[in-house]
Design a protein around this nucleic acid. Structure first.
Lengths: 337, 337
DNA sequence: ATGAAAGCGCTAACAT
DNA sequence: ATGTTAGCGCTTTCAT
């Protein structure tokens, strides 16, 4: 079953079939219909390898997914699925690479022309794969923002602004003592962009608004760690009335622990989450939160990757504006007795 | 950069380079070394598409991952990562498909020769993709076991035996009243193989050992649902002393709720989990459990897929024997007062 | 043990 | 608006 069979069946030349398929030149309405009918009848599918060979386009994107245990897996999975879905909308497929393959994996799939572009998740500020990505000569899109973005396309939520937004929201309600429960220590140690930038925005805004230097408590993604963080918070920073949580796994147990300790949310303590909306909404009470627009980020990444194929990599950083959804976990602080 | 450049550089013919790479005919030690050196120096990578075209082998596997919200995501992700890792060990790459593409996606990637074999996760007893898989003429490996396995390779944990094993363990400790907290109702409604078979084994073994028909409580993967299940269990089946939980997300909150209700585990109630070992071990107290060997299942699946390329699909069901690891959540039942 | 050369199925320049 | 044809880079007979 090849393009020649279709051509014969439709009474046209192979190139005409090719052009009907690609739309790269105008075809008479009549011919187009005949060809499409032949394709349907014969059940013809172009051979991907032959296509890639002739056109130097594989119509395949590489997606590098993180393995780290400190990355929230459901969110990573949603990214991956959204990237696949977005890629299909642009007639592309997705080759799955794990972080474990590292730079060699990138060289391999690029060097053998398996993929047209590369999308990388979980980018660190000083990521070792970045120089490699530059050498490759393929469009590369990072979900995340490293220190040096030269020649690369980056997509992310504006986490700096997200951090600020949380402070503004809480300060606007009258909170004067804030704290931040964050990602696991390892995330900060390897300088993951989003975590570092969130904290920066959070601290800046606090400073600007005259809020005293807030406590920052990194937290492992376990219930036990969240309970410990709650205990630490209440013991070491008892005056805190406004809390920002950037840790999908810890949000629910943290709030539960606070309530178990007799603090009402939002009566005594207001809590704002940063992360996937459904996670925040599922907590009791539903948490006011700055949402992580996973689907939109993934779609943008795919679009940049695919667009880069024709226009060259459209380098530059795309930051999506964060929005805070007000749910039932924030209120003015309790009146001092 | 093509095979011709390497051949010229090494002073041999292109076919010799090809044979050095594939090992499909003997090459003098001297020639081999020269060619490999040239490959290294030039940084040559064979063009995947050209290879696929000439050899009708893409060295790529398709992996269909589930999207369903009732599938435990971290486990699905571990499967995916393990499949990629296993595939790389066999010099294959992995193309990621989502369930959303359905049968058409399978036809597409098979028809265009993008992949040599297909691995499908989250298989239902009567899965609509199975007839398609048979038509395709590619090796197909299911992680899971449908009703009709004719012509297909299936890999799974022996969940029937896993269910029996739990009963035997509990009955062996002296428990005479058992209950089962399972996956969400939807999982049973769509007749997911593993869930149905576990329950069958569980009930059979109970019958054989003279244990009265145990209560079965399906459970959504949320804390609230787990707490409800705990309450229902204590209210409606107060005599229960042995509990089997097959629900990664519910295990921890369920046990927590039981303890919060004043039941000690394993003092009053023994609990056995079925699922990923690390999840079970992370609960307080660490749960005795029948582990789900994710990595091994994935590796087997890959191996069957790759082996099928040369030998034809080695149809048949591979069931891994379950083992129960005794941790601190099971003990003899309390003596009747 | 090695080389020469015929495809694999498609795309895209070059025709008309 | 359509046809002809030369590759794309590799594998694999067929020779020697």
């Amino acid at each position: 079953m090849s393009i020649a069979d279709v051509a014969r069946h439709a009474g046209v030349s192979p190139s005409t079939v090719s052009y009907v398929l690609s739309g790269k030149r105008s075809i008479s309405e009549d011919t187009r219909r005949r060809v499409q009918e032949s394709i349907r009848v014969l059940g013809y599918r172009p051979h991907a390898g032959a296509r890639a060979l002739a056109s130097s386009r594989s119509n395949t994107l590489a997606l590098v997914v993180p393995l780290r245990s400190d990355v929230h897996v459901p969110v990573a999975m949603r990214f991956a699925v959204s990237v696949v879905t977005g890629a299909r909308d642009h007639d592309h497929d997705v080759l799955l690479l794990t972080q474990a393959e590292g730079a060699d994996g990138l060289r391999r799939v690029a060097g053998s022309s398996m993929v047209d572009a590369i999308i990388v998740m979980d980018v660190e500020i000083d990521d070792a794969r970045i120089p490699v990505l530059r050498e490759l000569g393929l469009p590369a899109v990072l979900i995340g923002v490293p220190a040096d973005t030269d020649g690369l396309a980056c997509v992310d939520l504006d986490f700096t602004e997200a951090g600020r937004l949380c402070v503004q929201h809480l300060a606007g309600l009258g909170h004067g003592r804030l704290a931040f429960v964050g990602e696991p220590p390892a995330v900060y140690e390897r300088r993951t962009g989003f975590a570092e930038r969130t904290l920066a925005g959070f601290r800046e805004a606090a400073r600007e608004l005259g809020v005293p230097e807030p406590a920052v408590l990194p937290c492992e993604p376990t219930r036990a760690a969240a309970e410990r963080a709650a205990a630490d918070l209440l013991r070491d920073h008892p005056g805190t009335t406004g809390l920002v949580v950037q840790n999908e796994a810890a949000a629910e147990p943290l709030v539960a622990a606070l309530r178990a300790a007799g603090r009402s949310v939002p009566g005594d303590l207001s809590v704002v989450a940063i992360g996937a909306d459904d996670v925040a909404a599922a907590v009791a009470p539903a948490l006011s939160s700055v949402g992580l627009p996973v689907e939109e980020l993934a779609e943008r990444a795919v679009e940049l990757a695919v667009r880069g194929l024709d226009d060259g990599t459209p380098a530059g950083v795309t930051l999506l504006a964060p929005t805070l959804v007000d749910r039932s976990s924030t209120a003015p602080p309790p009146r001092r007795a």
